[in-house]
Structures are given as C-alpha cells and as structure tokens.
Amino acid sequence: MLLKSRLLCTAALGLLLLAQTANASSPEEDTTKTSCIQRAQWVSPKDLSLLSPTALLKKAAAQKVVLLGEFHPDEVHHRWQLQTLTQLYAHNPNMVLGFEMFPRWTQPILDRWVRGELSEKEFLKQTNWDTSWKYDADMYLPLFHFARTNRLPMIALNVHRDLIRKVAQDGWDVIPDYQREGIETPRAAHPDYIKSLKEVFSQHSHMDEEEKESEDRFNNFVQSQLTWDGAMAQMIAKTQKAGGNPLVVGIMGSGHLTNGYGVPHQLKGLGLNATVLLPWTLGWDCTELVDGYADAVFGLEEMEPKGQDKKPILGVRIEASADKKGVLIEEIVEDSVAEKAGLKKGDLILTAADLATNEPKDLIRIIQQQAHGTWLPLEIQRNGRPLTVVAKFPQLGQ
C-alpha cells in the first residue's frame, strides 16, 4: 500500500482496529527510500533540507496551534509525539492538548482525569475506550499522563461516530441542528482534497459499482470527512480563542493533516494557521514528500514486532451491524492476519470460535484471548452468503 493511500485512509476511514505494522522494506529498498531523511532528523518537505530542532520547536511553541500526526497503530509515532510535546512544553508551558481519540461527550471525564480523580482503568472504562477508539491504550496513556502530571487541560476534539455515519449516508444538510453536536457547517473542501477522497471512495469494496458511481453518495462521503475535520478544527479554534492565548496542540491521525487538506484547511477558514509536524517512518516512499506536505517531518525507525506480552491482532477495523447481529469489517490492514485469511471489507463476522460476535467488544475479547500460533475459525456472511474463514495467528517472531 502506498504511503498516500495509508494516510488518506487514516482520515477518511478512521483506519484500522487491532492494526499490524505494514510496509516493511527490504535492505535494498531502505538504501534508496531513506536517502531523503535519516533517523532523528527534522527535515523540510519543501526541499528536504535539515532543520534545527531547537529553532523549529521554539518557533512552533510560539504559535497558536501545533498539530502532531500519527499512524494510529504505530507505537513509535506515539513515543515521538510525547517527545515533541515535552520539547514544546519546555518552550511554552501555557499549553492545552486536544485529542482526536475522544468524542465531545467525554469532556467531563477528561477533566476528572486531569484533576487526578480517576485511575487508568476507570478513565478508559468511562470513556468507552475499547469500543470508541479501539487502539491499544498503552500507546496513548503516556500522553494522557503527561497532561495529568503537568495539569494541562485535555480537550475532546471528536464527535460521535454515529454522526459521521449519518452524514456519509444522508448528507450534512439533512442532519437537524440538535444532532450536529454544536458543529457549524464546515468550510468547503480544497479541490485536491476531493481528488484524494475520490481515490479512497473508489476502494470501498463493500459498495457495488453503481454506488461507487453515484455522485450523491460520493458527495455525502466528502461531507462526512469535512464534518470530521471541521469538528476538530472548530473545537481547537474555540479553545484557542477562549482566553489566555494558550498553545493548543492537537493529537490526531496524519491523514487529517497531510498537505494541509483536512484540519489545517478548516482552521484557516476560522482565522488560525497551524504548524503541522509529522512523523516519518524510514522506508516510506520519499516521493510523497512534497512542498506543503507538512511544516516538518521527523525520521523514525519502524515499529518493532510485538513482544510476548502483546496479544494477537487480527488487523481489521470493525463496526456494529445495524441489527447487532454480527460485526461489519470496514477496513483491513495490508499483510495482516485478516488479509491472509481472505477476509474482505464488507464481510459480516457472525461468530468466532463458535461464540457470537454481536458487538465489536465480543470479537475484541475473543481475539485478545487467542494464543499466538493458533487458528481461529470465523463464521462470516459475504454478499448474503455464509462462509467459514480460518484466521491463522503466527508464532511470535514470524
């Protein structure tokens, strides 16, 4: 999968539950693909010139908004975010942290966490982490503890996924005001963003060809992405302009940030410019680094294979079905257990190991109990037909 496709999917599809590391490169590929950036370097995408870390971060900390991207399943990206946060904080402790990971209704819980009133377990349970965001909480907890330790406000930037789905299905205009969660109509998309979203839209295998050719369906899809971007941008702007002139640092998927199409574009419409800093994994295709990709990128090693303490992962993003009878696969990670088993977007998983999977948490629990090196039979429904698929979880180190 190309880097561009991966980052677009981050924004347009929310990426993938229980995702695996993708895009491992051979030694020969590493020699050519990493020539533009090395580990621990800050580089300007404009001309691939090296940047001074001190000067870059001091200047960024003096701005009103800094946006830090991530590839959600990559724990190395989250370590980089924490490192960058600490450096920004050293220059400007008047900081507020905004997180894509939390919908607006969780704001009182975030406030209680920062005040020290909740344990980790209580915090994750009350925010419905396992069903709302679904990625490994251990990757994010150091960021949450950083906010708590320094008493930095945490802001919930996102909206409930039901709103995004409704917009994707019916369009923004038909959503009544009381269901919009306080969001104003987002700014019109940049033309190049529409082209990028068209590419993502065409890859939706759960839709038939007639749906993919539907202009109305595509327009609704674009509006759903603008709702997502606009919601986060509007909350960032509201926070920054509320008083005290804080540095608002947004933590979110890189697909919302690359080339300035998503959240940065929405922020400009609200009168705010953002400094965009992105992680860059060695081995990614450097032809994607173009002027405007970000203000700066930082070179990082690839994520190491999971250790013995890590649970098996299937490599899918799932959502509950409308009738709560099975979970729907919305996306699949390249080269994952799911892909190798033959699972596809649009498949409905009915059972796993003969246990009903009526909700996402059911499948998550079953997978987390699976041992490395074992097989997991899945009863699925594809295009109305029942099928049996066997997911083969590799031994550790394979």
Rank of each mutant, 00 (worst) to 15 (best):
M1H: 13
R6E: 15
T10I: 09
L13C: 07
G14D: 05
A19W: 07
A22R: 12
T31L: 06
T31S: 02
Q41C: 09
D47F: 10
L51P: 11
L51C: 08
L57Q: 06
A61C: 09
Q63M: 03
Q63H: 07
E70K: 04
P73A: 02
D74N: 14
V76Q: 05
H78I: 01
W80S: 05
L85G: 10
L88R: 03
P93Q: 05
L97V: 15
F99N: 11
F102Y: 15
W105H: 11
T106D: 11
Q107A: 08
D111V: 12
G116S: 07
G116W: 11
L118E: 12
L118Q: 12
K121S: 15
Q126H: 08
S132I: 05
Y135I: 02
D136T: 09
Y140S: 11
L143M: 14
T149C: 04
L152K: 11
L152R: 09
V159N: 00
R161T: 01
V174M: 07
P176R: 01
P176A: 00
I183D: 01
I183L: 13
A188L: 10
D192M: 02
V200Q: 09
H204D: 03
D208E: 11
K212R: 15
K212C: 06
D216C: 01
F218E: 12
N219H: 15
L226H: 13
Q234C: 01
K238P: 00
K241A: 05
A242L: 02
G244H: 12
G244L: 07
V249S: 11
I251E: 08
M252T: 14
G253Q: 05
G260H: 12
L270M: 09
N273I: 01
N273F: 04
T275C: 13
W280G: 09
G283M: 02
V290M: 00
Y293S: 01
A294Q: 09
D295L: 00
A296H: 09
L300Y: 06
E301Q: 04
M303E: 08
K310Y: 03
L314C: 06
R317G: 15
E319C: 00
E319D: 04
G326L: 00
I329E: 11
E330M: 08
E331R: 08
I332R: 12
V333S: 15
K345M: 11
L350N: 05
L350P: 09
L350E: 13
D354E: 15
E359M: 03
P360M: 00
D362H: 13
I366H: 10
Q370C: 14
A371D: 15
E379G: 10
Q381A: 06
R385V: 13
P386V: 01
V389E: 10
V389K: 07
Q395V: 06
G397N: 05
